[in-house]
């Protein structure tokens, strides 16, 4: 367990709803859910979810902390906003899902092998290095996410698209050598550090 997780368990004891309200983006909306289920029924990826949003909200209220935070469900959200549009109580469901995923990640509880979570990490590592997304490296990192063999296979499959992108100058093979970055890289890093500090202070509060 991460230190933060231990601290949060200690702080909120058995009141997971309170914990969500205080720490999850838009979390204070959770209690407004009236369990009509229109979000779950409207989710285009609904079949793939372990727990549909409506169930997640009920689980939060029922204090099922571990099950919720380690669930892959929130990571399945594609931000199509169908649920938000249809929710009769206008809960910002999409945002809550991302908020929950983010919070679980921060506590170190998010599922390790969940592809969306993995890709999000790759994206962040790629972006935070130079302040620019290196699409070539990000693409390759994604292809090789599940091992070398599969990476080669995917690369071969995508070969024509890659060549096409090079030809139309949408991708530069030289980027593999390091690639371009923002002008003031140290300034960019200082900014990220400051943002992390602000966020940290907020959590400690």
């Amino acid at each position: 367990m991460s230190d933060l997780n231990t601290a949060m368990v200690e702080k909120y004891r058995s009141n997971f709803l309170k914990e969500v309200e205080a720490n999850v983006e838009e979390g204070d909306w959770v209690k407004m859910c009236m369990q009509c289920g229109v979000c779950s029924g409207s989710c285009p990826l609904g079949n793939a979810w372990e727990h549909p949003p409506q169930e997640i909200f009920m689980m939060i209220r029922a204090g099922k902390r571990d099950e919720v935070l380690s669930s892959s469900s929130m990571w399945m959200c594609t931000s199509c906003y169908n649920c938000i549009v249809r929710c009769p109580r206008e809960l910002p469901i999409t945002h809550i899902m991302h908020g929950l995923a983010h919070y679980a990640k921060r506590l170190g509880l998010s599922p390790k092998e969940q592809p969306t979570a993995k890709f999000a990490q790759l994206f962040w590592d790629n972006l935070s290095k130079d302040g620019r997304v290196n699409e070539l490296k990000l693409g390759l990192a994604l292809y090789f996410m599940n091992g070398f063999g599969e990476g080669i296979k995917t690369s071969l499959k995508m070969k024509d698209i890659g060549l096409g992108m090079v030809k139309t100058k949408r991708m530069n093979v030289m980027e593999i050598l390091g690639g371009h970055s923002v002008k003031d890289k140290s300034g960019f890093h200082a900014m990220l550090k400051k943002a992390a500090e602000i966020e940290e202070a907020k959590i400690q509060k």
Partner: peptide, 28 residues
């Protein structure tokens, strides 16, 4: 059925098909 129907579609026989998730058991 404890559920707000998410949407309705028509099948080839003209039936109105109600789709959603049941709150009692979360079944689709």
């Amino acid at each position: 059925i404890k559920s707000k129907v998410a949407n309705i579609v028509e099948d080839k026989d003209g039936n109105a098909v109600c789709r959603g998730v049941d709150t009692e058991g979360y079944t689709r």
